[in-house]
């Protein structure tokens, strides 16, 4: 295939998002093949380092999906994920990485349709953004947040 196709890692919680992906499968919904789902028990297991690790190994985006607020199987892991995600967004800004490359979604076990919609949407967004390009040398601090900042791994 010649056209650019983004690679996306999905970090899906076992109880809601992963079950919803199963439902999408059982319902034979068709969606973009760009997301590779890695199952964790809770979105609270999401660690921002996973994002940089994924970027380092060739990902163009990371999709984190957990239970809706109030629905976490472990009471509040999804809130912890949200906190880390907010911090991560600031870090992405500083590094000059587009925020759209990392997405956090609440997907309940019954929302197979949402799995499809989010994956298709994110794939489309990343196709537009093009491949992730990170410069080898970090930018000077004053340039942070204005131009494409640099960070490797």
């Amino acid at each position: 295939m010649s056209a650019y196709e983004p690679k996306i890692v999905g970090i899906f919680c076992n109880w809601c998002a992963y079950t919803a992906a199963d439902l999408a499968g059982i319902s034979r919904m068709k969606y973009a093949p760009n997301v590779r789902i890695v199952r964790v028990m809770c979105s609270g297991r999401f660690d921002p380092q996973m994002v940089f690790w994924a970027f380092k190994h060739g990902a163009d985006g990371v999709l984190i999906a957990g239970c809706h607020p109030g629905d976490c199987h472990y009471q509040e892991g999804n809130y912890k994920a949200l906190r880390r995600f907010k911090l991560l967004q600031k870090l992405l800004d500083q590094l000059g990485i587009e925020r759209e490359r990392v997405r956090l979604e609440w997907i309940s076990a019954s929302e197979g349709e949402k799995v499809k919609q989010v994956i298709d949407e994110m794939t489309e967004t990343l196709r537009r953004l093009g491949p992730l390009r990170i410069q080898e040398t970090p930018q000077a601090p004053e340039a942070v947040g204005t131009a494409g900042g640099g960070h490797h791994g």
Binding site: V40, M41, C42, G44, R45, F46, D47, H73, Y74, G77, K80, R84
Partner: peptide, 10 residues
Amino acid sequence: CKGCGTCTAA
């Protein structure tokens, strides 16, 4: 412990 992994991430 119920195995959510929140502590491991943090």
